[in-house]
């Protein structure tokens, strides 16, 4: 048992090293094309994120949405559900928090927490639509949730251009006073306490998944629905509830992120954090406990990329290429290991 944990840790390390090596190679290639200084770029990419406390705080800020969406996706994938509504729920949750917090007024901690919980409940409720369609009618949750993202997006766009908008500030919600937001942990580097909520969410989901009867039933349903039904587990219930919980977590994430790092909601497009959730989940092997380290890794890469783009030699697009390659590296490994598992069972 111990050796198997050690082994999987080793493979993870190897993959991380490989990912970084690939990043370095692509960067070097871009560097030659763009005639930049290789040394400067490498230093910025690998050491830039650790340069000073501002850079480190930037990594920690990056981690928050990644942890929330990563945990949400992990939970749903564990139940065999590929629900894309994480994206829409994150967006919708942020918007709701942006609207609710000013309505509730300035109450230390109370306002942000009520806003976050309401966003979670509301997004969980919306997430019930594809969930129920899947569990009762067999509608593919992947497609329906993808469509739902657009519905939520355009509804928010409509509201933000009208009723929910700040009359003095076009296409945004009202200004968030300090007491409506989550308190800062570190004033000078603007490190918000939403990181703590994110870590608690990851921990809570891990406990839920591995220690409770619901988590066990959810995992059995995801691994093998036939086995679950045969054993007397109500598989449909878990198929639906995993998606509702996942959506709620994503909504919670959007709300926490907004109330921690922004002063009003004014996103004009879907932020893609939901899709990042799938990357994080596959790096973490759908294990909630492994989500924060995975988010740390991706956050580090992103801040490294930011540092490189500040040098001005390398266009931002190269960074996206590197990200894509890393995703393929992890995604492919994820799929391979699954197939190997299934292929090996007849041995």
């Amino acid at each position: 048992m111990k050796s198997s944990i050690l082994k999987s840790l080793c493979t993870l390390l190897i993959r991380l090293t490989l990912a970084l090596a690939v990043a370095a190679i692509v960067l070097a290639g871009a560097c030659i094309l763009m005639e930049g200084s290789l040394e400067d770029i490498m230093t910025a990419f690998f050491l830039g994120p650790l340069e000073d406390e501002y850079a480190i705080a930037e990594i920690l800020r990056e981690m928050v949405p990644l942890i929330f969406t990563g945990v949400a996706v992990s939970l749903m994938v564990r139940c065999g559900q590929f629900n894309m509504f994480v994206e829409g729920a994150f967006f919708g949750g942020a918007f709701l928090a942006g609207v609710l917090a000013p309505m509730l007024g300035e109450h230390f901690l109370v306002t942000p927490i009520i806003s976050i919980l309401s966003a979670a409940v509301a997004m969980g409720a919306v997430g019930y639509i594809p969930a129920k369609m899947k569990s009762s009618l067999g509608v593919n949750e992947f497609v329906s949730s993808l469509m739902l993202n657009y519905i939520v997006y355009w509804v928010v766009m409509y509201l933000i251009h009208g009723v929910a908008a700040d009359p003095d500030y076009p296409n945004a919600t009202l200004y968030l006073e300090d007491l409506m937001r989550l308190p800062l942990l570190q004033e000078d580097i603007e490190l918000s306490s939403n990181l703590i909520i994110a870590l608690l969410a990851a921990l809570g989901c891990g406990v839920f998944l591995f220690k409770t009867k619901w988590g066990y039933a959810l995992r059995m349903t995801g691994d093998n629905p036939t086995f679950a039904v045969y054993s007397g587990i109500k598989a449909k219930k878990y198929v639906a509830s995993s998606q509702v919980i996942g959506s709620a977590l994503a909504g919670m994430g959007g709300a926490s992120f907004l109330l921690g790092n922004y002063y009003r909601f004014q996103w004009a497009s879907l932020p893609n954090y939901g899709f990042d959730g799938f990357v994080i989940a596959s790096i973490a092997g759908n294990n909630p406990y492994a989500v924060p380290p995975a988010a740390l890794f991706l956050g580090y890469l992103r801040v490294g990329a930011l540092q490189v783009s500040r040098l001005g030699d390398i266009p931002n697009e190269v960074i996206y290429v590197i990200q894509a390659i890393i995703i393929i590296l992890f995604g492919a490994q994820f799929i391979l290991s699954r197939r190997r598992k299934e292929g090996g069972k007849h041995a």
């Binding site: 066990y216 059995m220 691994d223 093998n224 036939t226 086995f227 045969y230 299934e342 069972k345």
Partner: peptide, 21 residues
Amino acid sequence: MTMGTNQRASLHENLISVDFD
């Protein structure tokens, strides 16, 4: 293979599936 066991779980997880709750 598909009904009697969950091939992706441990022996323990396979043994408790009918009365874990």
